[in-house]
Computed example of a mutant assay.
Amino acid sequence: MLGATALSALTPLEAFARAAQIKSIAPAYHRLMLGAYEIVALSDGTVKIPLNTLYNHTTPDHIDKVLSGVFQSSPSEASVNAYLVNTGDRLVLIDAGTGTYLGPTLGKLIGNIQAAGYQPEQIDDVLLTHIHTDHSGGLIADGKRAFPNALLHVNKRDVDYWLNPLHAKAAPDTKKGLYREAIEAINPYIDAGKLRTFADNAEPIPGFKTILRTGHTPGHSSVVLESQGRKLVIWGDITHGDIVQFDEPGIAIAFDEDSEKAIISRQAAFSEAANEGYLVAGAHISFPGIGHVRRDSSNYDWVPLNYSSIL
């Protein structure tokens, strides 16, 4: 029979069972190399959105069924991703997150840039895929430029659309906020002489080509990076999520300015990515949002990049 001292040595200390739960997550960034380029996926956070009512050309019951098949429901957790590219010569941010516009679960971009080892002042260029608030709101902090040394590059179609006061005046009340937020976010760069517009399918920064994928917004553009034989296309909002629209590209979303054109752009983006086999990064695909597109028996499939701790 064991003595009392021996028994006490075998009994777990009560304090270990009562450790406080931490209830916080690690900084959300993921680093990988694309040839000679360092790519850092950055999370601005996540937000729950009712995909069953936001998707159109479908029914809420159908979306609920598809989501339940992958253990999800609506509202669904949507990622808001941005991408930082260090070419060795320039530090370029693709999209700028939400800033303070869309609630406390978002607006994490600056903190994650810093956690990844960089400072906002180091960024040479910000290149927007388009001027929706979840991509442009983070351009400002307290009304000032969050990236004070950066040039801001935006497709001219989007600048003409979102910064036109006549468009804002004519917009329905449900959309007036988008115009106001666009003006608030971009005007500080205009005032500082830092805004540069680019044409369709242009190369606004050396090594950063664009593809006009209109529909989601008039100037919505994907960004193409190539280095040492490897290719990454940063999609912007070709999809919202990584489930429904890959099997059914004809399903659009309420955020599209022109759903029919957005569907055409999505089908073209899917086909090209599957044909060429290059890496893709999506702004609203589950963080870090990087992977491949393949064809399958039901249309297309999203294949997340295999995690690697080796650069």
Rank of each mutant, 00 (worst) to 15 (best):
D247M: 08
A202W: 04
G229N: 05
P249M: 06
T197H: 00
I251A: 01
Q228Y: 09
V223G: 03
S271V: 08
K176L: 07
R157M: 02
I264N: 00
E184S: 15
P249Y: 04
F208C: 11
E248R: 06
V233H: 09
E203W: 09
P249R: 04
A170D: 13
A252S: 15
L163C: 06
N201L: 10
A254I: 15
D191A: 15
E248N: 14
G219L: 01
G193M: 04
D200T: 00
A273W: 05
F270R: 00
A170H: 08
A202L: 02
N155M: 05
G236F: 06
V159A: 13
N164V: 06
H167V: 00
A268H: 09
K194F: 07
E260L: 09
D160P: 07
K261M: 11
L232P: 03
K169M: 14
N155H: 14
A269K: 01
I264R: 06
P172Y: 01
D256E: 15
R213T: 11
A268K: 15
A202H: 12
L225T: 11
F270G: 01
P204Q: 08
T174A: 14
I211W: 13
Q267Y: 02
T214V: 02
Q245P: 09
P172D: 10
I186R: 02
T217M: 01
W162H: 10
K169L: 14
G241S: 07
R180D: 11
Y179V: 04
A202Q: 08
I186P: 02
I205K: 02
I253S: 06
I251V: 14
N275T: 11
E260I: 00
I211Y: 12
L178I: 07
R213L: 14
D237A: 07
R230Y: 02
S265Y: 06
L163F: 09
Q245W: 10
S222M: 10
V154M: 10
S222Y: 09
G277D: 07
T214M: 08
H220C: 08
K156L: 10
G236Q: 04
L163D: 08
I251F: 07
V159W: 05
A182W: 06
I263F: 07
D158H: 11
G215S: 05
E181Q: 15
G250S: 13
E184I: 03
P206E: 14
L166D: 15
G236L: 05
G215W: 02
T217I: 02
I183W: 11
D247I: 02
I238V: 15
T210A: 11
I186C: 04
D160C: 08
W162A: 12
P172R: 01
D258F: 04
E276S: 09
A274V: 10
A170C: 00
L166S: 10
D256F: 07
F198H: 15
